[in-house]
Design a protein around this nucleic acid. Structure first.
Lengths: 121, 121
DNA sequence: GCACTATATAAGTTCGCGCTTATATTGAAC
DNA sequence: GTTCAATATAAGCGCGAACTTATATAGTGC
């Protein structure tokens, strides 16, 4: 876990994960995309990919001479678990601030419906 | 946003936020609690508090000579927003792996999660 | 005023991350 | 085999974050 937030701390790595969330890509595609936004060399990107691989945030398989990267679950679960502790407290603060917004409190029920389908037993 | 994950990257700061999620505390209480777990000086903790203050992850008010720290919403929302992009994709991987937390036994036979077959309808 | 407590800021050092260039590895095509 | 393409690894460097110690600030009580 400890590492998870460090790994997500890099804007380049976050961007790579965003790219992989769209679809799987080869190392070359990632390098190309990243270099359009960041001034960084191919080995630079490759090292970030290495970090993502080792952490499980991404997986890779060889496909001929290319490496296809895919989003991995990795420590996302741990990040979520950690954040869970704050969801309650934090939304309370938002509510406190929300006096300005003057939103109806029942609005929050709508948010709840955004959750992935969760079947109650 | 960029800063949010950097700020959460520090274990000391994460621990402070956990403490504040329980209840508000004075700087002294935080220093004491942190020093039980980390080998760090009072100014060290104070600097972390400063970072949390400036980012909005925490707020402080003077109470006599003490400073009372309280959890702030800060960039939590941005972190959540960023993670939102991955919740879908990421839970798919978890399903595909069909491992991890064994999330309870929903009895619906809607989904037999043993097979690696990932048939998204 | 002085002394003491609580906390923050200043100034300086160290260490690891994120980069670089150079090179190794692996695969395909010839 | 040789050569080219795609990618990873090695080695080294610079800079900023996270510490440290020392000191300043602010509040309370005498």
């Amino acid at each position: 876990m400890t590492r998870a937030f460090d790994i997500l701390g890099s804007p380049v790595r976050r961007r790579i994960l965003e790219l992989l969330a769209e679809r799987s890509r080869t190392s070359g595609e990632i390098v190309e995309a990243i270099q359009r936004e960041f001034d960084i060399s191919q080995p630079g990107v490759s090292q970030h990919l290495s970090v993502l691989r080792e952490s499980g945030f991404a997986t890779s398989r060889a496909e001929g001479p290319r490496r296809v990267y895919e989003l991995g679950a990795g420590p996302f679960g741990e990040v979520e678990a950690w954040l869970d502790r704050f969801r309650g407290a934090w939304s309370q603060r938002l509510d406190a601030l929300a006096t300005e917004v003057a939103r109806g409190k029942r609005e929050r029920r709508l948010q709840r419906s955004k959750e992935p389908v969760r079947r109650r037993a």
